[in-house]
């Protein structure tokens, strides 16, 4: 009993830290983008102020129960993903609730939030929400394929479904990282990550000018605050998952921060360089090269690493 109480306490500490880190990371990225455009950019504390302000706003609109549940599902997805991903390898405090099959649960939670959001946004009855949801789910289905293929390759390679064991297998030098032992899987997963992060080539589902910000069009006040919080938690959890699976995990806080920032910058750099895909283009994109790379990575594992 006491063991669980301590674990939950540790998890709450992790959650708080990851939320703050995620919000700061968002501000840092926004400032980086601003510098690229020759601006100063938002203050570092802007995401925190936005959340406090949105919590202080009034809510006078009701669209039914599912509308309220949408952001709750979404934040449940974010927290759930984080709960089963060890943030720092070897640390009792930041290991979270890891168990033998946590990779499957984490993957499930990644998509759980999106589906909940789709239901909630659909309930709002706004046509732009429906368009955004249709585009978002279509694109999600497409980028899920290379991502899952890459995960399968990694699982075959390390013969385990536990993220902690995958991290453990990558310890002992940079050359043990999945990035170097199985580059094809990492390539497929990183391409899927571009779709997941919602930066420009694949941000058609939240196009602010065409379909005013897509699914969350009708979400306001505390719903918006909840979703902004979730964006921070979810982005961090996803980055940590990628770091654990492909980039050797982290043994310290500084290492974690540097690695996740670097992974995030991949999406940002690509986003700053490319214009937006239409949704049919992005689906075709994901179903061609990344999917083939994913299949190739499984073959690579079977033939060269195990065979």
């Amino acid at each position: 009993m006491e063991f669980w109480a301590v674990k939950i306490g540790y998890f709450l500490i992790t959650l708080g830290m990851v939320t703050v880190y995620g919000l700061l990371l968002g501000a840092i990225i926004a400032r980086t983008m601003a510098r690229v455009q020759g601006r100063i950019g938002i203050p570092y504390w802007q995401p925190f102020l936005d959340i406090i302000k949105n919590l202080g706003k009034r809510t006078a609109v009701s669209h039914g129960v599912m509308f309220y549940m949408g952001p709750v599902f979404r934040i449940a997805g974010g927290i759930g993903t984080l709960a089963f991903v060890p943030v720092i390898y070897g640390s009792e405090m930041f290991s979270n609730f890891h168990f033998a099959g946590d990779l499957l649960l984490a993957m499930y939670f990644i998509f759980f939030g999106q589906l909940g959001m789709a239901l909630g946004a659909g309930e709002s009855g706004h046509p732009f929400s429906a368009i955004g949801v249709a585009r978002g789910l279509g694109q999600m289905t497409a980028f899920e394929l290379p991502f899952v293929l890459a995960i399968i390759a990694v699982v075959i390679q390390y013969d385990t479904l536990s993220i902690t064991e995958i991290v453990a297998a990558q310890q002992g030098g940079v050359s043990n990282w999945t990035l170097f032992t199985n580059p094809l899987a990492v390539a497929a997963a990183m391409l899927a990550f571009l779709g997941m992060s919602g930066y420009p080539p694949f941000d058609v589902f939240t196009a602010p000018n065409e379909i005013p910000i897509g699914p969350p069009t009708e979400y306001h006040s505390s719903f918006l605050a909840l979703m902004a919080t979730n964006r921070a938690i979810f982005a961090s959890a996803k980055l940590i998952l990628f770091m654990d699976l492909f980039f050797g995990g982290a043994t310290g806080l500084i290492e974690m921060i540097i690695k996740t920032w670097a992974i995030y910058m991949v999406a940002v750099v690509v986003g700053a360089s490319f214009p937006r895909f239409r949704v049919d283009q992005s689906i075709r994109f994901f179903l061609r090269v990344p999917t083939l790379i994913g299949i190739a990575s499984i073959a690579f594992v079977q033939i060269f690493l195990l065979g």
């Binding site: 601003a34 455009q37 601006r39 100063i40 938002i42 203050p43 609109v61 005013p212 969350p216 979400y219």
Partner: peptide, 21 residues
């Protein structure tokens, strides 16, 4: 834009009336 950059004052555009203040 870069010349005026209202973002630094916490001022940012929002596409929908529900989220704007």
């Amino acid at each position: 834009t870069a010349r005026y950059d209202a973002y630094r004052f916490g001022f940012q555009p929002r596409p929908t009336p529900r989220q704007a203040s």
